[in-house]
Design a protein around this nucleic acid. Structure first.
Lengths: 337, 337
DNA sequence: CAGGTAAATGCAATCGATTGCACTACGAAC
DNA sequence: GTTCGTAGTGCAATCGATTGCATTTACCTG
């Protein structure tokens, strides 16, 4: 793209100083310029096809109007809605989002965050579950603006937006208790992720509260494969008394589906299964999945809102926003036979 | 983020000119500087925590190392793999991707592409199905680098990467013919999209070739809702002779699932259904969906590769890359009863 | 009519990095 | 002992827009 029209080009045609053009085109400063001149300059700018150079502006103003969004993996279907939520708040306000994928690798995460800083992002929205806590603390000291989403940040007092994991697990256990389940298995998400830990803790606490015998199996990733292999291991042990499985998220739950199916067992007749997130397509699985709806789009909106609100205010309180979740009962849970 | 370390800061500490620091830190120019000096300066830069300012560099070099990726909607599960493919090629080469969503709205598309241009993207990867052809032609004249993916661009001779739509529909029809289907319905994607048109044309041609009576129903969007309502309308007409439905993509096919189910019919016993794309989770639907696998990740890689290759070479030939597709037979297609 | 005020515009520095050109040494060649 | 080449650095312009300050012009007031 060559021969771009610059402020100076417009100024030359209009016979004025570039400064005047700059002021005329900016709504904040146009009142410093004669109304008639503004009209004339705007017209010329339009005719010449002038487009401001955001890069040059960013250099001078020290604002890039760009936000970095750090997620583990875009192909996990909970993230696209979250990103869209972020976008929906940022775009009308002149901001754009840079989305990067860490694949759960904290080294990759460091590299990518650094690359985002080099690109002068004004702030970060971080949705990765684990890693980089010491780096975040370092960044916080240096005055970086960031908001955590779907996670906490023990080391750095950034604001955080999360779903109500604890309450979500609560309604799940309550639901299973009502159906008569006494022995429930939790396929927990990775312990390095705060959602993994929180849901696991809540599971143990709530089980006890409802007089349910709750056991926990661990996984290293939030993925279908991890869920399947964890469940496979459980089912190999013939003498398992479980009548229901609470998975750390929907992907793990889907892995559990695969495992149960491959062992010629029936959901929910033999084993009930519950997911977490209500990601797209869970209602189309066989059977439709009972899960906990988490408002990911809204989480994105809220995170973006919090981040931008930090730019104005000097104080940076470690605000915590917890969004309500709700149980979606479908066909994967049933009465104990 | 205040108090960033700049080249000048490093230069002051090292007691040299900023130019020398710049040359020392750049692999292309470091041989212009004394080896010992380079070593010293690099050490100081590291100790001070210097990070280059990509914005400033971009202003001077007229390269942003940024690529704009224009897609209709990130929540359509075929796009995350495509974006990841683009990323996987760009990142190791120092580029980053700006992803924007147009929601199939060509006015939004214009706005967003303009915003990307203002941000000085070095090139564009465009995956939106329709709209903006005259704008693309204009951009092409002005020397913009772009690659179309999953679509053609009649108005502008940009390179394009697509799946082999025609061959895909071919194997689908062949498959259905073998199963004995004589009356097949095509729920076509929007006519404004090149995939919609191509698949529809291929359907008509291939049906004729195999002696199948092929009818076409149109939709305005690639969405579950559009597929469902289109199929609802068909099924209201009691006297329909169709034994199989070929949907324009998997989302439309899923809508067809919903419609068929709500009419208390069975897939594939009453009606066979075929999708297109093999998007994630199609194998987990009830029944698992027969569909055409399109290598979206590879399409992203290929698009990125083509785009970057344009930067070097002066000539910009309208290359067309067609990636092979393959039929994935699952449970949603069966013999005619 | 002098003096003051405000509106409108120009001037020039600035943001941070890159790069063509000029300059200084130093060693080699004649 | 000049002259020349070359390696190593410095100087200063540049990218395009923004903005504090200076300057001009016009108008108003006493």
């Amino acid at each position: 793209m060559r021969d771009r029209v610059t402020l100076a080009d417009v100024a030359k045609v209009a016979g004025v100083n570039p400064a005047t053009v700059s002021r005329s085109l900016n709504e904040q400063t146009e009142n410093q310029v004669n109304k008639e001149t503004v009209r004339r300059i705007r017209k010329i700018a339009r005719e010449l096809g002038y487009t401001p150079n955001t890069v040059a502006r960013g250099l001078r103003t020290r604002k890039s109007l760009t936000i970095g969004v750090v997620i583990p993996d875009l192909t996990n279907p909970i993230f696209p809605p979250l990103v869209r939520g972020v976008d929906s708040y940022l775009l009308p306000r002149g901001y754009s989002a840079f989305v990067v994928n860490t694949d759960g690798n904290s080294e990759t995460e460091n590299t990518l965050i650094n690359s985002l800083m080099e690109r002068q992002v004004d702030g970060l929205i971080i949705a990765t579950g684990h890693g980089g806590d010491e780096m975040l603390a370092e960044f916080h000291k240096r005055g970086l603006c960031a908001v955590m989403v779907n996670r906490e940040s023990p080391g750095a007092p950034f604001p955080a937006v999360t779903g109500d994991d604890s309450a979500g697990i609560g309604v799940v256990i309550e639901h299973l208790a009502k159906l008569g389940h006494k022995n429930v298995l939790h396929i927990a998400g990775p312990a390095e992720s705060s959602t993994g830990r929180l849901r696991s803790q809540a599971f143990t606490a709530q089980s006890k509260k409802h007089g349910i015998s709750g056991k926990v199996a661990k996984t290293n990733f939030y993925s279908i494969e991890a869920g399947q292999s964890a469940m496979d291991k459980i089912l190999e042990n013939k003498a398992n008394p479980f009548t229901a499985v609470v998975a750390g998220n929907d992907l793990l739950a889907l892995g559990v589906y695969h495992s149960i199916r491959s062992h010629n067992l029936n959901i929910p007749k033999d084993i009930s299964v519950v997911g977490f997130n209500n990601m797209p397509f869970t209602q189309d699985f066989q059977p439709p999945m009972t899960t906990v709806d988490v408002p990911h789009f809204d989480m994105g909106v809220e995170a973006a809102r919090l981040l931008l609100s930090q730019f104005d205010s000097e104080e940076r309180a470690p605000i915590k926003v917890t969004l309500p979740v709700s149980l979606i009962v479908r066909g994967s849970t049933g009465l104990v036979s």
